[in-house]
C-alpha cells in the first residue's frame, strides 16, 4: 500500500528468524568436518574421517536400508489412500464432509507418544511382534492426513467442470480419470510422495515404540546419541540426512506450490 524505500524492520526480523531456524541445524554439517571428537570451538581442522567411520558401520547401513524400505512403502500407500480420500472430499458434495475430514486429521492433534503407545498396545493384544511392518503401519496412519492435506489443496483448485467436460466429450469414467484428473493431480501426487517419504524416513516418536529387532535410521541415531565417542559419526550421518531431506523437501514444496495460487482460498494450502 504505502511504498517505503527505507529498510523494512519486518524483513530484517524475517531474516533473523531464518537465521534462528537454520543456524543450529547448520552446526551439524560444520562440525562433521571438524577434526576433533569434541563438538566445540575452536575448529581443529578439516577431516573426512567421521564420514569414513560412518560408512564402516554395518548397523548404520542396515538401518538406512530399513528406513528406505519402510519410507518407500509408506509413501506409496499413504499417497494412494490420501489421494482417494482427497478426491472424495473435493469431488463430491459429501454429506458430513467436515466431520469426516476432521476425523482423518486427528493424528495432527494427538501427541506422538499417545499414538505410539496405543499402537504398541494394539499389536501386543493382537499378538503381533514389533517389526518394520508395524513401524510402517504406524507411519501410514500419520502420513495419510499429510497426504490428504496436500492432495486436497491440489484438487480443490481443479474445476469439476473439467471432468464433466471430458465426460461430455464422450470419455468414460476411467479414461476421464487417466486423461484429465490424473495429469492435473500429478504435481500433488509427486509432492505427497516426497513429503510422506520424508515424514516416515525421519519419524522417531512412533517408531521408537513399534520397532523390533530391525532398527530404522532415527532409532539407530538415537542409540548412538548416548555414546559420546560416537557423536562425530552422528554428525556425519546427520549431515547426509539433512542434505538429502532438504533436497527432497525443497523439490516437493516447489512442485506443490508452483501453479498453486489457490493457497489463499483453501486454508489447507499450508
Amino acid at each position: 500500500m504505502e511504498q517505503t524505500k527505507r529498510i523494512d524492520g519486518l524483513i530484517v526480523y524475517g531474516v533473523i528468524y531464518l537465521g534462528f531456524l537454520y543456524l543450529p541445524i547448520l552446526l551439524i554439517p560444520l562440525f562433521s568436518f571438524n577434526d576433533s571428537i569434541y563438538i566445540a570451538f575452536p575448529l581443529k581442522g578439516f577431516t573426512l574421517q567421521w564420514y569414513e567411520a560412518m560408512i564402516a558401520q554395518d548397523a548404520l547401513v542396515r538401518s538406512l536400508m530399513n528406513s528406505l524400505k519402510v519410507a518407500s512403502a509408506v509413501a506409496v500407500i499413504s499417497t494412494i489412500f490420501g489421494t482417494l480420500a482427497a478426491k472424495a472430499v473435493t469431488g463430491y458434495n459429501l454429506r458430513g464432509k467436515a466431520p469426516v475430514v476432521a476425523f482423518i486429521m486427528i493424528p495432527f492433534v494427538i501427541p506422538g507418544i499417545i499414538l505410539g503407545i496405543s499402537l504398541l498396545v494394539l499389536i501386543n493384544r493382537l499378538g503381533v511382534t514389533p517389526s518394520l511392518l508395524t513401524v510402517g503401519l504406524g507411519h501410514i496412519m500419520i502420513a495419510i492426513p499429510f497426504s490428504m492435506m496436500v492432495m486436497i489443496s491440489r484438487l480443490e483448485g481443479l474445476d469439476r467442470d473439467l471432468e464433466e467436460a471430458s465426460m461430455d466429450l464422450g470419455e468414460g469414467v476411467w479414461s476421464t480419470f487417466w486423461r484429465v484428473t490424473f495429469p492435473l493431480a500429478l504435481p500433488g501426487i509427486v509432492a505427497s510422495l516426497l513429503l510422506t517419504f520424508t515424514l516416515s524416513f525421519d519419524e522417531f516418536l512412533i517408531a521408537f515404540f513399534l520397532t523390533g529387532k530391525e532398527a530404522t535410521l532415527p532409532i539407530f541415531i538415537f542409540s548412538q546419541l548416548r555414546l559420546s565417542q560416537k557423536l562425530p559419526n552422528v554428525l556425519a550421518l546427520g549431515s547426509c540426512i539433512l542434505a538429502a531431506s532438504t533436497v527432497v523437501i525443497a523439490a516437493a514444496e516447489y512442485i506443490r506450490r508452483r501453479n498453486l495460487r489457490s493457497d489463499r482460498q483453501s486454508g489447507l494450502g499450508v
Binding site: 525421519d202 522417531f204 532415527p218 539433512l242 525443497a250
Partner: peptide, 9 residues
C-alpha cells in the same frame, strides 16, 4: 524445510 528434516537431528 527445517520442519520436515529429522526432529531428532
Amino acid at each position: 524445510v527445517p520442519f520436515w528434516t529429522s526432529f531428532l537431528l
